[in-house]
Nucleic acid binder design. Sequence first.
DNA 1: ACGGCTCTGCTATAGTGTAACGTCCTGCCG
DNA 2: CGGCAGGACGTTACACTATAGCAGAGCCGT
Lengths: 168, 168
Amino acid sequence: MNTTRGDKPAFHDGGHEHQSCIEDALARADDVCRERGVRLTPLRRRVLELVWSSHRAVKAYDLLAALGDAVGAAKPPTVYRALEFLMAQGLVHRIDSLNAFVGCPQPDHRHSAQFLICGGCGDVSELNAASIDRAVADQAADSDFALSRSIIELHGRCPRCATLPPTP
Amino acid sequence: MNTTRGDKPAFHDGGHEHQSCIEDALARADDVCRERGVRLTPLRRRVLELVWSSHRAVKAYDLLAALGDAVGAAKPPTVYRALEFLMAQGLVHRIDSLNAFVGCPQPDHRHSAQFLICGGCGDVSELNAASIDRAVADQAADSDFALSRSIIELHGRCPRCATLPPTP
DNA sequence: ACGGCTCTGCTATAGTGTAACGTCCTGCCG
DNA sequence: CGGCAGGACGTTACACTATAGCAGAGCCGT
Ligand SMILES: [Zn+2]
Ligand SMILES: [Zn+2]
Ligand SMILES: [Zn+2]
Ligand SMILES: [Zn+2]
């Protein structure tokens, strides 16, 4: 695994063996679901696997297409329900600015996350930066605002894509 | 006007005379468009006025319905094109987590904004908190990420709605 | 086996956003 | 003045995103 954990490490390595990312994610998902007494059914597990097929955010209808490879093409509610479950368990996050979904590298504990989204390769990296959380909480408090959910999606260029134009 | 400017002031006052919010916003829009040599046509001005009809974020199809009051109901591209122009000029912001649009209280200068979104009354308040900008920029730099656009949307309860449940 | 629950499949429909083309209007140049 | 280029708007059609509502299948405790 090479997603950042809040201290130093950064974006995904281009040449990493991604199969292990998928296996790790599925193993963590099995664990948290067993601990919580919820059912990671084959369908839900398959959807999670597809979400993790890259480090990019995946669109619901792309999942749908990938699921329906065989004969009986899957219908929208199938994938949306699986995603709803996976989000409720913190196994995937929704990226609102992309209408897409990305796997969470740390589903075992509740956390507020920030996302770095590369406009070049599309890879998404999840941060858990206490400094951002603090700044946000302080500002909310200054406005007497009772914060319940922060959506922080940062668009730009990852180190590998730094050359190309800003974000056309 | 009573939207916060980055220092102390907070959420909108419930009993304020909102007509002046609208007039101020339209006057500012006239100014910036004249200065920039772009055309705030009657349609665009009308859409902006409708966006400012409350401090809530307004959905594109609600604008569409409000425009088409009379005979020839407006079509989607009409309002989306107007919104595209208004966003390009910084006169409105899009709230991605709501698929909706809100007027910007300070269209005269470029700024990165954060939004406080009340789950009770729906009102949206725009912040321009340097402390959040700094924390975000620092974290992006730590990851060698070239930041181009930050989306920060904070959901919760405004002071007046603080009682009700967290966000059902 | 029974009754309650969750998960899944299915149909249909709501909601959100764009492509592509044509017309009109406006400002500009010859 | 006449023609022209570009921008703004209308219109049609379509793509994409998401949910409601109902029916059948599977699981589980009693
Ligand atoms: Zn990987
Ligand atoms: Zn990249
Ligand atoms: Zn007001
Ligand atoms: Zn409120």
